[in-house]
Design a protein around this nucleic acid. Structure first.
Length: 445
RNA sequence: GGCCCUAUCGUCUAAUGGUUAGGACACGGCCUUUUCAAGGCUGUAAUCGGGGUUCGACUCCCCGUAGGGUCACCA
């Protein structure tokens, strides 16, 4: 059987992680079976559908790497729906019904489906058999008019035409399924397989929504997440491989995925773990890839000023070491950020230079003068972190590490938290480092 | 409220009748260390409750309870 799955969002708002996880499962299942994955924009609600949201859906899928084989937009297909509604009316499977409007916008005439009022059973691939008594739905509305069909109708018509074999969608559609099956039968279409994916919940266990802080998935791109990390994390929400390996590429997922291992219960979206995944993927990048992909969040003075390219290469290991998402980078360079000392000469109180375990100004000055002497012996062209350490270390060991290294580090960075003194000095260069130590000595005198 | 779905550490989950109930994230401790991270080691922590079935239940059944979904002229 040639597998066809689809992702059928309505462009009435930004879609969140839960929506894209469902899309991801549909995509993976299609690719795993060498089938087709279709994107269908469900924009029958003309009031609320916006092009902006449709564009964001297309953009998001592209970012995540979920390429689709066909694209449908329901608003392009109004005529087709009209004809099929007419056919149902002609065969008395639907009828025009007189109504008393209740809300603004309500019509005095709608098209209702003649419900055979029976029990419908379907076999959900994740949950097993589910039974509904459709009597509870009555003769439900399938269109407001011949040109204004409703979700329940178009979704069946389109999946019939596309030939969707597996309808993979959120659990919130379970109770719609029996109605849809009734329409499949009325239309004489084969009933596809249904797969209802559990919902994603916010940390407070409520449904993911704008209110509880769920974000458009593209917002994670803005915050410096890698799409491969997002995909990996999303796949592991509600699904788990046979072994305990959690770092999985899209290819791995396509190889290993199965609905049997999809959880039945809803899962809570936890950004903490996604950050961890992102760091794992960040570690796999080489330096050039890292810079290329972090571009948007590296400070402009460091990235674009050719004089600073050398500085960039020196701080890169440090930046990489402390970064979980690219979004962490700007704050290292903000005022009093851990790397803020690079761009601006630090201004700090004298007390900053005193080690808390031995807050003596004489001691700090003595060690600082000695460090300065040792550092100045290093030739300019071999001013590396390693050589700086080698020059200072024996003296450090002969005394007390803290007594020597705390004043040295703070003289260079002026910060409570910063990289170690050897790396800091290396980044600043010999001349600038000696200058800063000199300033500190004067402050202590 | 009716109908439907679900229930293992705080979170994501493994274990499909027999395990000291495993792993990951987070959290704590230790090591490393001038600081902050990172890293290494390590620790705390779970089968919702009650009945069955069974020699034996996380696992099967029933009843509760809790959470979620859905009851639109939205999708």
């Amino acid at each position: 059987m040639n597998i066809i799955t689809r992702f059928a969002p309505s462009p009435t708002g930004f879609l969140h992680a839960g929506n894209y996880r469902t899309a991801l499962f549909a995509y993976i299942f299609a690719r795993q079976n060498k089938g087709k994955f279709v994107l269908r924009i469900e924009d029958t609600d003309k009031e609320r559908s916006k092009k902006e949201y449709e564009d964001n859906i297309v953009d998001s899928l592209k970012w995540l790497g979920l390429d689709y084989d066909a694209f449908y937009r329901q608003s392009d297909r109004t005529a087709i729906y009209g004809e099929l509604i007419k056919k149902l009316i002609d065969s008395d499977k639907a009828y025009v019904s007189k109504e008393t409007p209740i809300e603004a916008g309500d019509r005095s005439e709608v098209i209702r489906f003649r419900n055979p009022n029976k029990k419908v059973v379907f076999d959900d691939l994740i949950r097993g058999p589910i039974t509904f008594d459709t009597t509870q739905f009555g003769d439900f509305i399938i269109a407001r008019s011949l040109t204004e069909p409703i979700f329940h109708f178009v979704v069946v018509v389109d999946d019939g035409e596309i030939g969707t074999t597996h309808i993979i969608r959120g659990e919130d559609h379970i109770s719609n399924t029996s109605r849809h099956i009734l329409i499949y039968e009325a239309l004489g279409l084969p009933v596809p397989k249904f797969v209802h994916i559990p919902l994603l919940l916010a940390p407070d266990r409520s449904k993911l929504s704008k209110r509880n802080g769920s974000l458009p998935i593209t917002e994670y791109r803005n915050r410096g997440y890698l799409p491969e990390a997002v995909v990996n994390y999303l796949a592991l929400l509600g699904w788990h491989p046979v072994d305990e390996k959690e770092i999985l590429s899209m290819d791995d997922l396509i190889k290993q995925f199965s609905f049997e291992r999809v959880q039945k219960a809803s899962a809570i979206f936890d950004e903490n773990k996604m950050r961890w995944f992102n760091r794992e993927y960040l570690l796999k990048l080489n330096d050039d890839e890292f810079i290329e992909r972090a571009k948007a969040l590296i400070p402009a003075w460091l990235l674009n000023d050719s004089n600073n390219r050398e500085v960039l290469s020196r701080v890169l290991p440090l930046v990489r070491d402390k970064t979980h998402t690219f979004g962490d980078i700007p704050k290292f360079f903000e005022v009093s950020g851990e790397l803020s000392f690079i761009e601006k000469t630090p201004i700090y109180p004298k007390e900053m230079l005193l080690w808390k375990k031995n807050p003596s100004a004489e001691s700090a000055l003595k060690h600082l003068l000695e460090s300065k002497k040792l550092i100045s012996t290093i030739p300019e062209n071999s001013f590396s972190a390693e050589n700086i350490k080698n020059a200072v270390w024996p003296y450090t060991e002969a005394n007390s590490r803290g007594d020597v290294l705390w004043p040295l580090r703070t003289s260079l960075t002026g910060l409570e938290k910063s990289p170690d003194p050897f790396i800091s000095a290396f980044i600043l260069g010999k001349e600038e480092s000696l200058k800063r130590i000199e300033i500190a000595c004067n402050l202590l005198k």
